[in-house]
Design a protein around this nucleic acid. Structure first.
Lengths: 210, 210
DNA sequence: AGGTCACTTCGTCTACCATCAAACAATGGA
DNA sequence: TCCATTGTTTGATGGTAGACGAAGTGACCT
């Protein structure tokens, strides 16, 4: 289980039970124990509970253990339809490969910063505020009090976080306004435009194979 | 057991059984298993069998595991009489803190190099031959064919290797000839002279608290 | 030779831990 | 509101890993 989580992605307990070739109940017992020892952390989202490695130190330790054991695990293969995998909407924000890459970029650029441990909430930084304005992305300031500014929302196909909250919504809204992305009719799929490639993907340095 | 070996020293199976609070037989079985998995290596010397970590990678893995577990083990306390601990003879070569420091220094300076893995034998390098001459240490070339030039000999008090073989013997012989060390009467203890501090410890950069 | 010490091998036993099915809880959609 | 889906909790069970004592091996000393 831990080995399969080493790719940094999150998995549900049932998935992990299949990987470990044990019953769901066994997996559940085992996972609660791993949680107690703070080797994994859980993120409840809808009726799914996503398990992932708790810490970089856990990953590092596993890494060296795998070297000793000489084991390599198979890569994670998403079973999501390909046309949904690259870019789609998730409620009012973006999801898919692009959204995950965007999330990572924004975090790396320190436009947002983590508030606490084990809580998906982010806060907007000084740098972030300026950068968003520069890129022509406008936050809806009316309901700032009601809603979290930004948070990590686990991506179904990628099993890694993308950006949710008010900021996530603002990004999607701006992306559609500027015609960087087009919504497919009668589907959640998003398609990037020529203009989007230049003004969005290009400027943000997102090299995502479409 | 593995944790206690993390200081790089070697220990006997009985010592490890005491540390792990199990019977000697249990420890023995466990250690053979660790050996099979190449986590530890054994060095038979006299009627003792010294166990130590097999590899730097094993130590590194344990290190990160200990960080996760938040455990720290007690340091190794030699039960050797203090007057024997610092410097003494071991058959025809030197042993004790000084000898171990000397071994490490010689290896670091690349005067000798390891031949194979898991074999204590060393071979003399070009650099080493010149350096020995420069320091006024003469090898006895008569019995080169019979004896190993140099080898790691496990130090009883330090539980780390010092230098044995023809080179080890040559070092002790020269040290006594040049009056760098004096042999205590009727004992294996060696005492360093003023001259020895200058011309031996000093030149070799050995800072060993006497 | 014989005795002691250090350690391993063998045979046996037991406690414990993973495992599973069935019951329970929670969420989401119809 | 009900049902399907997802996941957790519980209690019983069986297999196995790890423990030990006794016997065996080899090295060293006198």
């Amino acid at each position: 289980m831990l080995c399969s989580l080493m790719d940094g992605r999150a998995r549900t307990s049932t998935e992990l039970s299949v990987i470990a070739e044990v019953s769901p109940s066994t997996a559940s017992v085992h996972l609660t124990r791993l949680k107690e020892q703070e080797l994994v952390k859980v993120l409840a989202q809808g009726k799914h509970r996503y398990y992932s490695l708790d810490d970089d130190r856990v990953a590092a330790t596993l890494e060296s253990l795998m070297v000793l054991a000489g084991t390599r695990s198979k890569p994670f293969v998403p079973n999501t339809p390909t046309h949904l995998r690259w870019a789609r909407t998730c409620y009012d924000h973006m999801a898919g490969e692009v959204a995950v890459a965007l999330h990572d970029r924004i975090l790396k650029n320190k436009w947002v910063s983590q508030k606490k441990r084990h809580d998906g909430a982010y806060e907007l930084t000084e740098v972030g505020t300026r950068a968003l304005a520069a890129h022509g992305i406008e936050m809806d300031t009316t309901n700032f009090t009601r809603r979290r500014i930004a948070c990590a929302c686990l991506d179904w196909s990628e099993r890694r976080p993308h950006l949710g909250g008010a900021l996530g919504a603002a990004l999607l809204r701006s992306a559609l306004q500027h015609k960087w992305f087009l919504k497919d009719l009668d589907s959640r799929v998003l398609r990037v435009t020529k203009r989007g490639e230049r003004e969005f993907l290009g400027r943000l340095g997102l090299q995502v194979g479409a």
